[in-house]
Design a protein around this nucleic acid. Structure first.
Length: 550
RNA sequence: GCGCCUGUAGCUCAGUAGGAUAGAGCAGCGGACUUCUAAUCCGCUGGUCGGGGGUUCGAAUCCUCCCAGGCGCGCCA
């Protein structure tokens, strides 16, 4: 809706520019004034334009206002130092609600992305242990961001990068081997840097059953076999956990495949051809500092093995080759030092480094009764994602993890989350939806006939100020989606939904929907239906359910 | 030492592309169910936006310098 106003004003500005011989105006932005007395929409274009031309903003605003001619604009005037404020007709808002009712769950979709191909890579936890609560945040953010971008018109592919190559796999194999021996009663010294979690013991027991002759192999082979088998087992567990958490991936990309296909070697060779690789101290270095990195980085160790970075270079090269125009990596904030390296590599390989957007997720501080819980995968002391979801519930966990911007630290207190589970904002939003469904059920119970076609309900009985406010909020949904998609800020959805739910709860407490007056009743039912549609769609983006009763 | 992130009400956090008198939730106090779900609503209380300077019609937002906290600066991943 505000889009239409924005277009109209832009058109007017072009006319005004032509008429007065002015340069074209800056982009017109329509916003919602905080105070009602200023009207429904507002723009500050006169300030920006006036500044560019060194003319008083009020004068510029006046010229624009005189030219505006739109049937749904009831009042337009210049306020304060030069704001242009608009008040819309009732019919305009009724039209807005009708749009929601006719587009249903498609409402809020936008063509902002124009089908641009975007890849979102997230979670990407090593297959050396189950997902813990720290991974949950990245999972929730990455998944909702993907849904959000799709809603905003991008063509999105979700990918999980499986770190199944290199050192960690060896450690996994050795850890499993040691536990297998223990289970068999063979005294053994557990590897110092091995994974100490209890899940390794469980896995070892299972391995002895499923791979009965593994212990007959020479140690190296046994460890390698256990490593491969274990990684697959763990990865399957991860997939189950993610499913439980309502997170889907289109693609599972194996790091090992980059070595097997020679992609890593090839990427390094290409850098070499460009003269960006040199040898020093028996190692191969990538001259990343020529592209803004602090210093050069080793890509092949003196022992001959490639570094993790080398694989990452090959991986990002592969992504770019697949034709994505935007690559979004969701990383833990402790990896931030990696950004300049990967960007440097992309640039060195001839790609625009700006196609890579990295979303840094600050770590979750897991607390239990106010006390921090130490969490290390190797130490084996952690609370798994599965445990938290089982304790607190998928909906509440997802919602809570999405109510903060990603670059802010997040305290997640298990006891508090459980205790507060009835005070959790997620229930507030879900309750609004359940309430609307309940109104409908009651109407049916009372034998009131529901409108067959919501689109055709006469909305003119909706004349209350608060009804208009609700519709205004509904019509702001699309703009919110676009803003959140543009800035990669999925948390905006949770705040929007909370505000919409609050408007509806207030309205519900002050007004009755199921009245004898059929016209008014149906109009209010239609309004409720509109709210339900947007709540449902917003919750879907969050991966949270919209219950019909609570 | 260098780099990234954070600092807003007692607590946890928003603040939508620099806009108009800075907002929610929780906590606290007081009210609202014979009427569509009280997991709700209504009212009150609560602020040197970490601090100083700067940019301009206008700054929580941009620049700069400090202060505090987190993270990172490996031939680990």
């Amino acid at each position: 809706m505000e889009r239409e106003i924005q277009k109209h004003l832009s058109k007017v500005c072009i006319e005004v520019a032509k008429e007065n011989g002015w340069p074209n105006s800056p982009e017109v932005m329509v916003s919602y004034p905080k105070e009602k007395r200023f009207g429904d929409y507002s723009t500050n274009v006169a300030f920006l334009w006036g500044k560019a031309m060194k003319l008083p903003p009020r004068e510029v605003a006046q010229k624009v206002v005189e030219r505006v001619d739109h049937p749904d604009i009831e009042i337009i005037r210049v306020d304060g130092p030069g704001f242009i404020n608009l008040t819309m007709s009732l019919g305009w808002w009724h039209k807005g609600l009708r749009e929601v009712l006719s587009q249903k769950e498609g409402y809020g979709s936008s063509s902002l992305g124009r089908g641009e191909r975007v890849q979102v890579e997230f979670v990407s936890a090593n297959p050396t242990g189950p997902l813990h609560i720290g991974h949950a945040r990245g999972a929730a953010v990455g998944d909702t961001l993907s849904r959000l971008l799709e809603k905003a018109g991008y063509s999105v592919e979700r990918e999980y990068y499986v770190n199944d190559g290199g050192l960690q796999m060896r450690i996994l194999g050795q850890s499993l081997l040691a536990r297998c021996k223990e289970v068999m009663g063979v005294p053994v010294e557990f590897p110092e840097d091995g994974y100490k979690g209890g899940y390794i013991v469980e896995l070892a027991k299972k391995a002895l059953q499923e791979l009965p002759d593994v212990m007959d192999l020479p140690e190296d082979e046994a460890a390698a076999k256990l490593s491969r088998w274990g990684a697959e087992e763990i990865l399957n567990g991860i997939k189950e956990d993610l499913e439980l958490f309502n997170v889907d991936f289109d693609n599972w990309f194996s790091e090992a495949s980059l070595y097997e296909s020679g992609a890593v070697e090839e990427a390094v060779r290409e850098l070499e051809r460009k003269g960006l690789i040199y040898e020093a101290e028996d190692a191969l270095w990538f001259a990343s500092s020529r592209f803004g990195d602090d210093k050069d980085r080793v890509v092949r160790r003196s022992g001959g093995a490639y570094t993790y970075l080398a694989a990452d270079i090959a991986y990002h090269r592969n992504k770019a080759e697949r034709g994505f125009t935007k690559l979004i990596d969701v990383w833990g904030a402790d990896h931030h030092g990696y950004i300049p390296r990967v960007r440097a590599a992309l640039e060195a390989l001839g790609y625009d480094p700006e196609i890579l957007k990295v979303l840094l997720i600050q770590l979750v501080n897991l607390l239990r009764q106010g006390k921090p819980v130490a969490m290390t995968t190797r130490g084996g002391q952690f609370v798994t994602l599965r445990e938290v979801v089982e304790e607190v519930g998928k909906d509440a966990v997802r919602f809570m993890l999405l109510t903060r911007k990603c670059d802010a630290h997040l305290d997640f207190d298990l006891e508090l989350a459980k205790e507060q589970s009835e005070e959790n904002p997620v229930f507030y939003v879900q309750y609004a939806h359940a309430r609307i469904c309940s109104i409908r059920r009651t109407a049916e119970e009372r034998g009131m006939s529901l409108p067959e076609d919501w689109e055709r309900v006469d909305l003119s009985p909706l004349t209350l100020e608060e009804e208009k406010e609700i519709i205004k909020k509904l019509t702001a949904f699309t703009g919110m989606i676009e803003g959140a998609a543009r800035s990669l800020e999925p948390h905006r959805i949770t705040y929007y939904l909370h505000e919409l739910a609050a408007l509806f709860h207030g309205y519900y407490n002050r007004n009755r929907v199921l009245l004898d007056d059929e016209g008014l009743r149906n109009a209010r039912l239609a309004l409720s239906e509109g709210v339900a549609i947007v709540l449902r769609e917003g919750l879907r983006l969050l991966g949270v359910s919209a219950p019909t009763s609570m």
